[in-house]
Design a protein around this nucleic acid. Sequence first.
DNA 1: CTTCCAAACTAAACCGATATAGTCAAGACC
DNA 2: GGTCTTGACTATATCGGTTTAGTTTGGAAG
Lengths: 349, 349
Amino acid sequence: MILAMNHPKRATISEIAARAGVSKGAVSFALNGRPGVSEETRTRVQAIADELNWKPNRAARALGQSQAGAIGFVLNRSARILGTETFFPQLLSGMQLGLTGSHTALHMMVVGSVEEEMEAYREWWQSRIVDGVIMVDPRVDDPRLEVLEHLGLPAVQVAGHPSQTAAIPAVWADDRAATDTLVRYLHGLGHRRIAYVAGPEELEHTQLRRQEFSASAEALGLDASQSVISGYEADDAARVTRELLGRSARPTAVMYDTDVMAMASLRAAQGLGLRVPDELSIVSFEDSLLVQLGNPPITSLTRDTVAFGTLAVKTLLEHIAAETSVPSIEGAQPRLSIRESSGPAPPSS
Amino acid sequence: MILAMNHPKRATISEIAARAGVSKGAVSFALNGRPGVSEETRTRVQAIADELNWKPNRAARALGQSQAGAIGFVLNRSARILGTETFFPQLLSGMQLGLTGSHTALHMMVVGSVEEEMEAYREWWQSRIVDGVIMVDPRVDDPRLEVLEHLGLPAVQVAGHPSQTAAIPAVWADDRAATDTLVRYLHGLGHRRIAYVAGPEELEHTQLRRQEFSASAEALGLDASQSVISGYEADDAARVTRELLGRSARPTAVMYDTDVMAMASLRAAQGLGLRVPDELSIVSFEDSLLVQLGNPPITSLTRDTVAFGTLAVKTLLEHIAAETSVPSIEGAQPRLSIRESSGPAPPSS
DNA sequence: CTTCCAAACTAAACCGATATAGTCAAGACC
DNA sequence: GGTCTTGACTATATCGGTTTAGTTTGGAAG
């Protein structure tokens, strides 16, 4: 800035020391509540610091104690998909809640591939920008775990089951139980031909859910039930749904991995002239405003994503502070929110 | 960590210097492409740095040159609302795009009030955590502008019109023109009683849009048209809509500020037995997957929010680098995406 | 009246980079 | 041959904190 301004000068510890007539070290002791200064000096220093509106310079502190004072979060999502996600902003809110009071900042980045994500971890860690990271969307044989472990970068994954890798604790939700809940609910309504439209195969929870879906269907004797893979995009799910419903013995109920998939498919089914829920029941693994505002609103599993974010951050902070591994933690179970998109199986089946 | 591990040690410039047999300064010159070292030394140093996988310590660099290497973004949103927003994640993606290649990180925080937001600005600036911030949702007589100016914290606002405050440049969209577009579109379809359900009054764009709505309606001779205030929550909008539609001379078309408001109101109207668009046309200022998956899909103004984010970040980086004020910039105009929720006014009107 | 100890400090090193002032040798020039 | 200049470095200060190793002082204990 060229013009002279009355912007408050950003005070340093040396200025405070000069004003208080003590050394820098004494000021540091006083402001950090450590022993080594008298109570009287402490209050005097504190008063001066308050008056000058002093805040510790993050870079200096980080440099001194080799700590960044921030955690990182990389989200691998295309811009288009991101705007439709309810999971992410909710998780973010929760993470924020977990951070309040810890004087830790959140560093974040949106990327388009796993490679970029791993590169971000490497760079953040080498540059001491973060002290740890939260990782989401675990994959089958996830290459990121290897990178995190190799770097020694503290991390917590938000996952569908406890980490295989002891070094990377997980905050997890029981995806198997969730799947079972949906299948049994539909079975209880009389459905015998149930389809499950799952997301990308490489995601770990896709695999967990599909396995459980098969096991559950078999246990209940639902022979004609099957799961199919679809992309997370609305169009993908709609196309897969139209294909499913065009078959000779079409399913009477369909389960979807996400809110977007369920909503897009609801419209696709209605476009084929099927009445929901009279002729077809639709349920979703993911609850959100989107499915709540559907016509009809869609029955879904409600998960407290905000709480998950908070739990993940707290676990990570603990992990960082302890400098030792912490155990995986199971988050709250999802609840089934029954809405108008699901009902008794049609008699003809 | 207690166990011995093969984690790569995070190399420092001193180690590189030792290995190359030169001084720290020479290494710094070599790695930053400055004169003072021979080409031969430069390549040798670079090779060693690559081998050790060296990345500059961000804190050390920040401390030295009094630059944080990060920009900040505070979002004032409740966790519940946040999960339903499409604006925010899209803006975030755009911001990310604007940051790529600049070696600048994004620091972010979700808060629940303007006061917390201002406190975050103060703290971030005093602690040198950020070099500048992106501010969204300008308000009427916005107290944040004062704080930003007083601190001398470089900022860019994403706004509905150019900044009144020369010191805080804006990346803006012409909200007046947008409002006019919607009103004229509905007028062209024969609608004469148009209602506008706007968001919170304290937001600047609410005021801009309402003013223009009145002016536009008057110019077209739409006497019975009016705008009403509603919260951004789905329930608020639905309640306001039911109230509007319950009146004796009910509107034949309603405009909504956001996608969520439009969707919730669509269901509310359908709940009252009104057919959309035959008896009631609904349009939204905001496009998103939500309105696209509506039943029927809702006519809306499509804005390139991602591009706005990118533009805002680029403007901010320029602002920071130039250390002088930069002018406000107008972003791309929104386009009207006509869908099935709007049609000719019913004959009875 | 020493001696010892703890409390309350100060001085200085340190973190890892950048920036600046010097040093040194080789070559140019008068 | 002596002075200048330039390139290629080295040594050191610096950023703003934290931390460690002293130092001073007052009072208690012997």
